[in-house]
C-alpha cells in the first residue's frame, strides 16, 4: 500500500503528463462555462455535456492511457530492479493514470457550476450521475488502455488498437444495435437491448444518463422497461456495478499480463 502511494506521488509529479491533464481539465472548464452561459444549469442544458462524457472521455482516456503506459516503461524498469512488488507498482501506475484524469474531469465540470452559483435543483441527480459515469468511463478506458499497452509492445500499433477499441465501442457496437433493432423490429426487443447495453460500457453510461432526461418518456413501452430497470436506484446501482466490472475485468487481465511481462 505504501509503495502504491509512493508510485502515485511520483506520477503526479510528472510535469509533462500534468500538462496534458491540465489541458484536459481546462477543456471541461471552458465547455461547462460555455454551456452554463448559453443554457443555464437545467437538465436539458447539461445534455451537451453528455455527448462529451460519452464520446470524449473514452477517447482521451484510452489514447492518453496507452501513451502513459508506454511512457512508463523506463520508470517501471527502474523500480522493478528495486525491492518493489510488481502488483504494487501496477496499482500505483493505474491510480496515477485514472486519478488525475478523473480529478481533471470533475474539477472542470464542478468548478464552473460552483462559480455559477450551484445547479438547478432538478439537475442535481443528473449531474451527480454524470460525474459518476464520467469517472467510471475513465476507469474503464484506463483499464482497457492498460490491457492494450500490456499486450501490444509496439507503441504505434498499441495506439492503433486503442483507437480501434474506442471506435468499436462508440460506433460499431451502436451500429450493431441499430441493425438488431431494425432486423428484429417485430419481436420484443426490450430485454435483448438491455443485454446489449450492458455489454458495452459506453452504451451503459449513455443509456443511464439519457433515461434521466427525455428518452424514457419518448420510448413508450420500451422506455418503461428500461426506466423501470435502469431508472431506479437498484438499476442505477447495477449499471454502476456493470461499469465497475468493465473496469475490473480488463484491469485484472492487464495485471496478469503485467506480472508475467518480461522487461
Amino acid at each position: 500500500m505504501n509503495t502504491i502511494l509512493k508510485v502515485v506521488r511520483y506520477e503526479l509529479r510528472n510535469v509533462v503528463r500534468n500538462r496534458w491533464v491540465i489541458a484536459y481539465a481546462l477543456f471541461f472548464l471552458v465547455l461547462t462555462t460555455l454551456l452554463l452561459r448559453l443554457g443555464g444549469s437545467t437538465p436539458r442544458a447539461l445534455l451537451s455535456l453528455l455527448n462529451v462524457v460519452v464520446l470524449f472521455i473514452p477517447l482521451v482516456t484510452i489514447v492518453f492511457g496507452t501513451i502513459y503506459w508506454h511512457g512508463s516503461r523506463e520508470f517501471t524498469e527502474l523500480l522493478l530492479a528495486q525491492p518493489v512488488r510488481r502488483d504494487a507498482l501496477f496499482h500505483g501506475l493505474f491510480a496515477g493514470l485514472v486519478l488525475p484524469l478523473s480529478a481533471a474531469f470533475m474539477a472542470g465540470v464542478t468548478l464552473p457550476l460552483l462559480l455559477y452559483g450551484g445547479v438547478a435543483r432538478d439537475s442535481l441527480p443528473l449531474l451527480l450521475l454524470m460525474l459518476v459515469a464520467g469517472v467510471a468511463l475513465t476507469a474503464v478506458f484506463g483499464a482497457l488502455a492498460t490491457l492494450i499497452a500490456g499486450i501490444v509492445d509496439d507503441r504505434l500499433r498499441a495506439l492503433g488498437v486503442a483507437l480501434g477499441t474506442w471506435g468499436l465501442m462508440t460506433l460499431a457496437w451502436d451500429g450493431f444495435i441499430l441493425w438488431v433493432t431494425m432486423t428484429f423490429a417485430d419481436r420484443p426487443l426490450e430485454q435483448p437491448l438491455l443485454v446489449l447495453t450492458f455489454l458495452n460500457p459506453v452504451d451503459l453510461a449513455r443509456v443511464l444518463l439519457i433515461l434521466r432526461l427525455d428518452v424514457s418518456a419518448m420510448m413508450g413501452y420500451t422506455g418503461a422497461v428500461f426506466a423501470r430497470f435502469l431508472g431506479g436506484w437498484l438499476g442505477t446501482a447495477m449499471a454502476v456495478a456493470g461499469l465497475a466490472l468493465w473496469a475490473l475485468i480488463p484491469g485484472l487481465f492487464a495485471l496478469r499480463a503485467f506480472r508475467r511481462r518480461d522487461l
Binding site: A81, Q82, P83, R85
Partner: peptide, 10 residues
Amino acid sequence: DDDGKYRAKI
C-alpha cells in the same frame, strides 16, 4: 519470488 524483497540486497 513475486514479493521482490530480495532485491533490497541487489
